[in-house]
Simulated scan of single mutants.
Amino acid sequence: MGIKSFQGARKQQQNTVEAPAFKVSDYMSRELIYFKPEQTVEEVIQILIRNKISGGPVVNDNNELVGVISEGDCLKQISESRYYNMPMEQHIVENRMIKNVETIDGNMNIFDAANKFLESKIRRFPIVENGKLVGQISQKDVLKAAIALKGQNWK
């Protein structure tokens, strides 16, 4: 004699609620302090100090990303200027900026972006759409996203 189940047939449950995509574009900064290639390094230093930031993107007149300049790039300039006894006023961003800039896609998942930060040791990534700078995501933005998401997902 076999065992009979008294449970009826179960309906296949449909999962109609999709988890929202936590995209970089939802957490990136859109209002950026950016620099122009022709600005002096001295101007950049003043802007970095005044705005309490450690660097920023460099864009041309078409708002296309052409580089990034950071405190470290400015420090190199100060060090070399003193060593070679050269005035700083002549030195422009274009000669000091990093030109080969790694970017992040605005559609990337915020958790994948966190991994990219860990792998690269970079503190901020510009976001470019159709060749134009549209935003920037920093490690701090990812941390803010994690705190915001904690209340929604984590137990």
Results as ranks from 00 to 15, higher is better:
115 N>G: 03
38 E>H: 00
125 F>A: 09
143 L>S: 02
27 Y>F: 15
17 V>T: 13
101 V>F: 12
144 K>N: 15
145 A>H: 06
83 Y>R: 14
62 N>E: 13
24 V>G: 03
154 W>T: 08
34 Y>T: 02
64 E>A: 04
34 Y>P: 00
50 R>A: 14
102 E>K: 11
33 I>C: 05
55 G>K: 04
88 M>V: 10
79 S>H: 11
96 R>S: 11
80 E>F: 08
145 A>P: 08
80 E>C: 02
76 K>V: 04
133 L>V: 04
95 N>F: 09
115 N>T: 07
86 M>P: 01
110 I>S: 03
128 V>F: 09
139 Q>K: 15
114 A>R: 04
32 L>A: 08
62 N>T: 07
36 K>P: 00
67 G>D: 04
73 D>H: 05
135 G>V: 09
136 Q>P: 05
119 E>V: 03
150 K>A: 13
9 A>E: 15
60 N>D: 14
85 N>K: 15
36 K>D: 03
29 S>N: 13
57 P>V: 05
134 V>L: 07
74 C>L: 10
94 E>D: 05
153 N>K: 04
133 L>T: 03
12 Q>R: 15
103 T>Y: 05
135 G>W: 07
52 K>Q: 14
138 S>L: 01
93 V>S: 06
131 G>A: 08
83 Y>E: 14
12 Q>G: 12
5 S>M: 12
83 Y>S: 14
81 S>V: 02
149 L>P: 03
45 I>A: 07
147 I>R: 05
74 C>E: 01
81 S>C: 11
5 S>C: 12
90 Q>C: 05
50 R>V: 09
119 E>S: 08
29 S>G: 15
84 Y>M: 06
9 A>N: 15
59 V>A: 01
103 T>K: 10
67 G>R: 02
46 Q>K: 10
123 R>L: 11
82 R>C: 10
133 L>M: 04
117 F>K: 00
108 M>Y: 03
6 F>E: 15
150 K>M: 10
92 I>V: 15
143 L>G: 02
18 E>G: 03
129 E>P: 02
135 G>Q: 06
5 S>E: 14
37 P>A: 08
61 D>W: 01
4 K>L: 10
12 Q>D: 09
146 A>C: 12
123 R>T: 11
73 D>M: 06
123 R>K: 14
96 R>L: 05
80 E>T: 10
135 G>I: 09
122 I>A: 07
100 N>L: 14
79 S>R: 12
59 V>E: 02
108 M>S: 08
24 V>S: 04
45 I>K: 00
123 R>E: 10
125 F>Q: 08
154 W>S: 07
1 M>E: 03
33 I>W: 04
111 F>T: 10
58 V>K: 00
84 Y>F: 14
71 E>K: 13
126 P>N: 05
23 K>R: 14
99 K>R: 09
109 N>R: 01
51 N>G: 09
40 T>Q: 07
